[in-house]
């Protein structure tokens, strides 16, 4: 199995060194094209006017926020089922990125909603689900931070991630149900506008750019996490040697 070749962190770090420059270059190119297209090529939407340009970052952020959770759920399976040593590194590295993406999605959504719907926030099913996703990302990050042992924290977070993955569809369904029950008086057109090809192209390019950015950040954060664990292991070794000269190094916190 090819994925097991990279169970060795050193080999993984070497692979990252090779891939990363290409990914960064592709990401920068995609952003350049995407931003150019979304500002200079895409026409104004006849309904939304220029605010449609917010969609070019809002929609990719929303897609990637969900993709990030899927990656974390798959990584959690990797931790619990296959015990792959990099799986919990991947899950831990993805959580802050996912939180940042959901945050971006929420803020841009609010900024789009104000001119379009006349309010920053509605308790719409989709918005509420993203808010719940945001809280779950933050909760997972808090769990990672509070547990000292990264292996135990990884397993605990993996269980919570998988329970969350089971729960998210149920939450989405129940919020949908709740929302139809409490339909607000002024019915807002909540489904997205039909997309014209002139807008679809910049949207897809921006989605590609954000995906590449996600993988760049994810790989870099994973590399940091591998290094952090190495530092931690070395500090523990230094502490176990218990030479007075190393007391300085162990006085610092492990994180």
């Amino acid at each position: 199995m090819a994925i097991w070749d990279y169970a060795n962190p050193t080999r993984f770090l070497r692979l990252v060194e090779i891939i990363l420059p290409w990914l960064i270059a592709a990401c920068a190119a995609a952003f350049a094209v995407g931003l150019y297209k979304s500002f200079f090529m895409a026409p104004e939407d006849y309904q939304q006017g220029d605010t449609v340009r917010i969609m070019f970052i809002h929609v990719p952020a929303a897609w990637l926020a969900m993709m990030c959770y899927s990656i974390m759920a798959i990584s959690s399976l990797g931790t619990l089922v296959w015990k792959h040593p990099l799986a919990d590194v991947s899950a831990k590295a993805a959580a802050p990125i996912g939180a940042a993406l959901t945050f971006t999605c929420l803020v841009t959504g609010a900024l789009w909603g104000k001119p379009m719907w006349g309010t920053y926030w509605v308790w719409d099913a989709r918005l509420t689900s993203v808010l719940v996703l945001f809280i779950m990302y933050l909760g997972l990050m808090a769990l990672w931070r509070t547990m000292e042992d990264p292996i135990k924290a990884g397993k605990a977070a993996a269980i919570l991630t998988l329970v969350g993955a089971l729960n998210l569809p149920i939450i989405k369904f129940s919020v949908d149900w709740w929302n139809t029950l409490h339909q607000p008086a002024s019915v807002i057109r909540l489904d997205g506008p039909t997309i014209h090809p002139d807008m679809l192209v910049p949207l897809l390019v921006m989605a590609l750019a954000f995906t590449l950015l996600f993988f760049v950040l994810h790989l870099m954060a994973m590399r940091n996490e591998v290094l952090r664990r190495r530092v931690r292991a070395m500090r523990m070794r230094a502490a176990s040697v218990a030479a007075p000269a190393t007391a300085r190094a162990t006085a610092q916190p492990a994180e």
């Binding site: 220029d50 340009r53 971006t104 803020v107």
Partner: peptide, 13 residues
């Protein structure tokens, strides 16, 4: 008319 919202969302992102 909504330039502020567009610029703000790009800045936040």
């Amino acid at each position: 008319p909504h330039a502020g919202f567009i610029v703000a969302s790009y800045i936040v992102t």
